[in-house]
Design a protein around this nucleic acid. Structure first.
Length: 832
RNA sequence: GUCUAGAUGGUGAAAUAGGUAAACACGCAGGACUUAAAAUCCUGUAAUUCAAUUAAAUGAGUUUUGCGGGUUCGAUUCCCGCUCUAGACACCA
């Protein structure tokens, strides 16, 4: 009989909507807080990459629940930020409308995955009830300073330091920083909006401009961030990545005089000769050099420097009077970007290769540098303070007003400072930041937002900050909000003492140096304020492999489109890369030039009279048109089949190239289970077979403990292959297997469970861990490293010497041998 | 470029306190059932050499875990040097 998934899944999906998986049993005080990085609700909906994480955590949640843990596995939406804003622009709608609509769509899609989330604990960062607390944390940062490993209120400094200078101590402070400035568009652009030094929208030139920005003083937390790695269980490579990024390091510094200015530069080794100096670009020092270059009219090189391109290196030859009276080179480059702030000596062998690389041009200078080798020991770090303001509309307003150009926070009592409404016309006409809003001033007498035209110090009406926060503002503390998403009086309620921090966190590797670091910082800050009693947000973290899928790229320059195979390498950099929807592709790799939208371009075709696209495998992303949604697969194969397939496809951590080919095996396997459970005419199990199956089951539990879920499916397959072949039907055993299988496939197992005569849901059943120890030990017998035999020896046989003799003398080669290698419980190797 | 990872059959992969490489699947080939197709079931499937037989089944050996070295009785696993691929590089989240 074939398994009719459509009918059965419909019934159980309906049943599970009402099923209370997350009821807290206070008698068992074991807790397991499991969390996926929350998505930003783009209009393109949920894609396969998201679903892998949700299904993975769902399986672990169901397993842990079976073991008797209270489970918290919530979901929310990171809805502020650039993607929502840009999608709204594209759709000619306001972001608030788009976000609402997309969240609704997302919820629907997630519910289709057979995943149990706590739907009562949903959060949304652009909800004013939520960002009230984002602003609250910002004000706490603004009003705190770090002193001798402690956090103190900034008012302690009021008597000692002028208000103006408190900026140097606050954890949220104002400082000048570089932004990507587009003079033509008259706005700040994100890195995402730029390609090859030009804006994607319009193709205008971008320059780096200094602007006053809010920063968070994360660098004060470096020591704590490094030290607390000792007790959290993240994978070592993830930890290393973050440690390198923090880049805390002992160096030797000297001062050199360059262009009449003293510069402090670093070396990792004071004993090495000075070969050259590399200045990070952009930085204070590289700018000094660039400014000097301007005086020498070397404009050519300067134009190139304005581009951000990681492969560009700029060499300037400078003669330096050192001990050896040799020339040394000075480079301006981002070669050392991740290492040092201002400059380094050449030290490594690799760095010589850097010298050899063709440089764009060499400028000769007659100026000399007086060099004194007075090295000082110093500690430096790579980590920079977080730039915390954006010149955009769709984000949390910064709750700060300015009196005589000095920042003051709005009293916490009057939060949230609501994001002002904007008319659709203004938004679509791209006047999209708080600068352009008329009603954006703070009336500090009446404690409310009022019109700019009323600004008057005597009436206590002040201008408000026109920046918004980056989307990390909402996401770096969000895991705390799931404790009590609707609580009005504080970030969380008393339940925090039960759930505490996240036990298992799942998400992308690309967040290591951003979100994961910032969350750790904010958690430590809140811990220092004694608001929470733990100092790490995520006890365990497992990175999720990305899903790659084909993308199609065409090359454009102004109104010309070039076929990929006729582009010369030299020209490639000038051309703009454009991702093309698969719908516009014909014959697997050619652009469909009959489409209307390509009529307006001049087409440079190849010799077959076609426009060839470049095909690349890239991460699924809405902007690259390579998203695949789970819905289409679920429609064809069913929820259970999709869940099992998506887990079977490979290790969770691996990157995967999307491919549907192997799903047939999963479909067959589900049919096999269905037929096995419903035709009951088999025999009972004997003890040898039981041992064999127990061994399988133990491995399943082991894999669950190590969060390796893909291997378990293979083991399930082995179990069913075995019991079907041996015609075993043991009721107890079958129930145990089914309960474990239910963590992966909810619908088919519930249906079978019911047909086996059970009334309650299978998720009410406990999972029993089996303890099993084999009595036999396996020995490999090798001759000259080649396997000759495998023998099993009773564990209690302690007389190993006799055993050894027995094997050597009686069984194998009683004559001559060179050497015997005997390793207990493992191997006996005879070398002849 | 710098940093962090990864690389195993036609494909996804399995195997590490160093000890039977390729489990479990997909695909493919051949066969059974069927008017036919689908579904299902059975057999084979890293490469290669040799032996043997009417045939089938079988047996023995060599090579093989991106490339080149090293340590070891023994390396997919540890070390060194490369190559290629992916991610991060601070305003995408």
């Amino acid at each position: 009989m074939k398994y009719n998934y459509k009918k059965i899944e419909k019934i159980w999906q309906k049943y599970h909507k009402k099923f209370n998986f997350f009821k807290i049993n206070i008698n068992k005080n074991k807790k397991y807080y499991i969390l996926n990085m929350f998505p930003y609700p783009s209009g393109y909906g949920l894609h396969i990459g998201h679903s892998i994480g949700y299904i993975y955590t769902d399986i672990i949640a169901k397993y842990k629940s079976g073991l008797g843990y209270n489970i918290l596995n919530p979901i929310g939406f990171d809805s502020f930020g650039l993607p929502a804003e840009q999608y709204a622009l594209k759709m000619n709608k306001l972001p608030s409308y788009i976000v609402k609509k997309n969240i609704k769509n997302y919820k629907k899609q997630i519910k289709n995955l057979g995943v149990f989330f706590n739907w009562k604990r949903i959060i949304n960062t652009s909800d004013k009830k939520y960002y009230k607390w984002t602003q609250y944390i910002f004000i706490k940062l603004f009003n705190s300073f770090y002193y001798k490993n402690k956090i103190l209120p900034i008012k302690y400094l009021y008597s000692k330091i002028k208000y103006k200078n408190l900026n140097k101590y606050r954890l949220a402070y104002l400082k000048k920083s570089y932004v990507n400035w587009c003079p033509k568009l008259n706005s700040v652009l994100s890195n995402d909006e730029i390609e090859n030094g030009r804006s994607i929208r319009g193709g205008y030139k971008i320059i780096l401009k200094k602007k006053i920005q809010w920063h968070l003083r994360i660098t004060k937390y470096i020591k704590k961030l490094l030290k607390d790695f000792n007790y959290i269980k993240w994978p070592i490579d993830i930890k290393n990545n973050q440690i390198k990024w923090i880049g805390y390091k002992k160096v030797y510094t000297i001062k050199i005089k360059l262009f009449n200015k003293y510069l402090k530069i670093f070396s990792t080794n004071k004993n090495k000769n000075l070969y050259s100096i590399i200045f990070d670009y952009p930085s204070k020092y590289s700018n000094i050099i660039i400014n000097r270059l301007k005086k020498y009219n070397k404009i050519k090189i300067l134009n190139k420097l304005n581009k951000i391109n990681y492969n560009n290196k700029y060499k300037i030859l400078v003669k330096i009077k050192n001990n050896l009276n040799k020339k040394i080179y000075i480079y301006i480059s981002n070669y050392y970007k991740n290492f040092y702030l201002n400059g380094v000596f050449i030290k490594y062998k690799k760095d010589y290769n850097f010298l050899k690389i063709k440089t764009i041009s060499i400028l000769k200078f007659k100026e000399y540098i007086n060099l004194k080798f007075n090295f000082k020991k110093e500690y430096i770090y790579n980590l920079k303070d977080i730039i915390f303001s954006r010149q955009r509309y769709w984000g949390e307003p910064i709750p700060i007003y300015y009196n005589n150009n000095l920042p003051y926070n709005i009293d916490i009592k009057y939060l949230p400072l609501k994001l002002p409404n904007i008319s659709k016309n203004n938004f679509i006409n791209k006047k999209i930041n708080l600068n352009n809003i008329n009603k954006w001033a703070w009336d500090n007498k009446n404690k409310k937002v009022t019109y700019k035209k009323y600004i008057n110090n005597n009436n206590k009406i002040y201008p408000l900050d026109t920046n918004t926060m980056p989307s990390s503002a909402g996401s770096n503390w969000y895991y705390l909000r799931y404790i009590s998403p609707n609580y009005n009086k504080f970030i969380f309620n008393k339940e925090i003492n039960f759930w505490k921090n996240v036990d298992l966190y799942i998400g992308g590797r690309e967040h290591i140096n951003g979100h994961l670091l910032y969350s750790r910082f904010i958690t430590k800050f809140l811990n220092d304020l004694n608001i929470i009693k733990f100092n790490e947000p995520f006890i365990n973290f497992i990175p999720q492999g990305i899903i790659l899928n084909k993308t199609y790229i065409i090359y454009k320059y102004k109104n010309k489109i070039y076929s990929y195979d006729i582009i010369k390498y030299k020209n490639k950099k000038k051309l703009q890369k454009i991702y093309v929807n698969k719908k516009d592709i014909i014959n697997k790799k050619y652009l469909n030039i009959n489409k209307k939208k390509y009529n307006k371009y001049i087409l440079f075709k190849n010799k077959y009279n076609k426009i060839l696209c470049k095909i690349k495998l890239e991460k699924m992303s809405k902007s690259k048109y390579n998203i695949i949604t789970p819905d289409s697969i679920i429609n064809k194969y069913g929820i259970d089949c999709y869940r099992l397939y998506i887990m079977f496809i490979g290790p969770f951590k691996n990157k995967k190239i999307w491919n549907i080919n192997k799903i047939n095996g999963i479909k067959r396997f589900l049919n096999k289970i269905w037929n096995y459970y419903l035709i009951k005419k088999y025999n009972k199990i004997n003890s040898d077979d039981k041992d064999k199956i127990n061994e399988y089951l133990i491995n399943i539990h082991k894999n669950f403990d190590n969060f390796i879920l893909h291997k378990n499916i293979s083991i399930f397959m082995k179990i069913f292959n075995f019991i079907i072949k041996k015609k075993i039907y043991d009721i107890n055993l079958n129930k145990n297997i089914l309960i474990l299988l239910a963590t992966y496939v909810p619908n088919i197992t519930e249906e079978i469970w019911k047909r086996l005569g059970n009334r309650k849901s299978i998720y009410n059943e406990k999972i029993n861990k089996i303890k099993y120890i084999s009595n036999n030990i396996k020995y490999l017998i090798l001759i000259n490293n080649k396997i000759k035999d495998i023998i099993y020896i009773n564990k209690n046989n302690n007389n190993l010497i006799e055993l050894k003799k027995k094997i050597i003398n009686k069984i194998y080669y009683p004559k001559k041998y060179k050497k015997i290698i005997f390793i207990k419980n493992k191997i006996l190797n005879i070398l002849l």
